[in-house]
Design a protein around this nucleic acid. Structure first.
Length: 110
DNA sequence: TTAATGACCTATC
DNA sequence: CGATAGGCCATTA
């Protein structure tokens, strides 16, 4: 086992690993995930990775929000309001601008 | 191989 | 202060 495997971990696969580790009741930003990947500029690729979303239901893409703490418009896999509702159901609070309190709900990977 | 796209972020006018 | 344009990196066709 592990003789000389080649994981070939693509940036996408790595994004799924990180997003999948997001605890319930917290949210992470694309930029933050990009930093965890090693490049803060991969923010766009992060969104792309979730866009393909190879395993919906396994990857809590609804816990990923932009730098403003709000969900993206293109997210709308069934209604932006729907996604916000999911986060609310997890214990995340939203203000009058559909924004999450990043100071309290932003996931911090130590 | 080149070209185009993209669920972002930042900077500038 | 608000709006607009560009840049960055990776993936796909």
């Amino acid at each position: 086992m592990m003789t000389s495997s080649k994981p070939q971990e693509s940036t996408f696969q790595k994004v799924y690993e990180i997003v999948r580790k997001i605890p319930r009741g917290k949210v992470a930003t694309y930029g933050q995930i990009a930093v965890l990947l090693g490049n803060p500029r991969l923010s766009r690729v992060v969104g792309y990775a979730l866009h393909v979303n190879p395993e919906p239901g396994v990857i809590p893409c609804h816990r990923v929000v932009n730098r403003f703490g709000a969900v993206s418009a293109a997210f709308a896999f069934g209604g932006e309001n729907e996604q916000i509702r999911l986060l609310k159901a997890e214990g995340v609070e939203f203000d009058g601008e559909n924004r999450v309190d990043m100071q309290k709900y932003q996931w911090q990977n130590k």
